[in-house]
Simulated assay, not measured.
Amino acid sequence: MSVEAERRIAPSVHAVALGSIGDAVAAQEIVTFGYVDARENVSRRRVEPHRQVYIELRWYLLGWDLDREDWRIFRTDRISEFHSTGTRYEPRPLPADSAVAYLRSGLGETFHRMRITIDAPIAAVADALRHEDARLSSVNHTRTEALLALDSWQRVLPALSYLDSNFRIEAPPDMATDITQFARRLTAAVQAHD
């Protein structure tokens, strides 16, 4: 054997689910399914499926949500009770160059923008965030600004801890609250251990 690849843990999606979604996309059929969002809210959805996207070790479905009358991105591993209705739809123009571009834009239901200013040079930050959708700019030779589109803020924690640098996070209110609560739990855990 001449090649070996690292094993990375990612949310699992059954091939049958991917096949069912792919069939509905190809047939342009409206689908229904149960969905659990990042905050564990459960809902039923009626969607015109447009594309499946595989990015950063996750599968997503991009579709037009008929009840919300807008484009939405759904993590495939959070979809259940998926059914094709047999009702066909006319494709809508996508408000981006591609499904990947739309997903990366952070405009979907599960993606949020975050800005992190890190007291580290851009080369170190680029290495630490190499698996994330991050746009980096150098503030000066020792400080970097990172703009990220994330479906969960927890994904950046390992990278920030490995950098061992001070940083400042600007995030949407819900995400900022979750991060603050986690910081309190982490502080309490360290104090309890002492």
Rank of each mutant, 00 (worst) to 15 (best):
W71M: 02
R72L: 00
R72F: 05
I73E: 02
F74H: 05
F74W: 00
F74R: 05
R75E: 12
R75D: 12
R75H: 11
D77E: 15
D77G: 06
R78Y: 04
R78M: 03
R78G: 11
I79G: 05
S80D: 14
S80P: 01
E81S: 14
E81H: 15
E81F: 12
F82T: 04
F82A: 07
H83K: 14
H83P: 02
H83N: 15
S84P: 11
T85N: 08
G86P: 00
G86T: 13
G86Q: 08
R88L: 03
R88I: 09
R88N: 13
R88V: 11
R88H: 15
Y89L: 07
Y89E: 09
E90I: 14
P91A: 10
P91N: 13
R92F: 08
R92K: 10
R92H: 13
P93H: 13
P93C: 03
L94C: 02
L94V: 08
L94Y: 12
P95N: 12
P95Y: 10
A96V: 03
A96I: 01
D97I: 10
D97K: 10
S98N: 09
S98L: 05
A99Y: 04
A99G: 13
A99P: 01
V100N: 02
V100K: 04
V100A: 00
A101Q: 14
A101V: 08
A101C: 03
A101K: 13
L103E: 04
L103I: 14
R104M: 07
G106Q: 00
L107H: 10
G108K: 08
